[in-house]
Write a protein that binds this DNA or RNA. Structure first.
Lengths: 130, 130
DNA sequence: CTTGACCTTCCAGTTTAGGGGAAGGTGCAC
DNA sequence: GTGCACCTTCCCCTAAACTGGAAGGTCAAG
């Protein structure tokens, strides 16, 4: 009842993306209209919106696919979702910590460069600020 | 006087990486020994260490290549380095801000899931926590 | 004379989430 | 009958920084 472009637009995606998701197993293989066009329902839009929320939370398509597989197997995936969110939280904390440490390193180098002793700009070496 | 493996080891890299850097223009095309082996000097190790410091600061190979090109043209690249470091700082701040915002979103979803009203684990829907 | 550790080149693949575009079918309006 | 928007499959491309592996050359030791 819904063609691919309409469905994609309803979920804020492109037709290309829907075919890609089908390919990756995030969407079940679509039914076809007599003319060969993929045929979707409202449920697909819900599913796409779920995928989009997952992406917004920084989950990978593989992780989202895992959630959907649990749900497609007939189980409530909430426990699984909770675990994924917990892992995502700790991953984010680790990433933030890493970037913060990197920022401190870079800030130190930058401060040295900004305090710029021109003598240190020595053609004999590459750059003493780095 | 130094073969590729030795040079790579001295800089904490692999021979593959040195060939790759040569290919990308970060290392000048190497001299060759009579048998066709690449031949490096101490200077190469210094250059590789400079590249490594740049990577440690989160600079891309392209940015580092830019610094080296300035220096190879006979100029002191310190001003250029200072600019790159400033840009890197603001990029890092933006990234950290983005990840921090994402963390807040995920934490919210996770808290809702942890406070877990089991009724919300409804087979009719995908998962109300996401 | 062969083993083994080096070295050479070149080609291909890794990861993520799609995008670009060709060649061709469908279906409605003018 | 033709223009137009839409759909189909197919294959290649992107960024980043390498890594793996195949096929073959070099050289010192045993």
């Amino acid at each position: 009842m819904m063609r691919i472009g309409e469905t994609a637009a309803a979920a804020g995606l492109t037709a290309k993306t829907l075919r890609f998701y089908e390919d990756r197993g995030l969407l079940p293989v679509a039914d076809r209209a007599p003319n060969g066009y993929r045929d979707y329902t409202r449920e697909t839009v819900d599913r796409l919106e779920f995928i989009r929320r997952g992406r917004t939370a920084g989950l990978t398509l593989t992780q989202i696919g895992g959630i959907l597989a649990v749900r497609d197997a007939g189980q409530a995936p909430c426990i699984h979702v909770r675990e994924l969110l917990a892992k995502q939280l700790s991953d984010l904390d680790a990433q933030i910590a890493e970037l913060t440490a990197l920022r401190a390193t870079v800030a130190e180098a930058h401060d040295a460069a900004a305090a710029g002793d021109p003598v240190r700009c020595n053609p004999e070496q590459i750059c003493s600020y780095l």
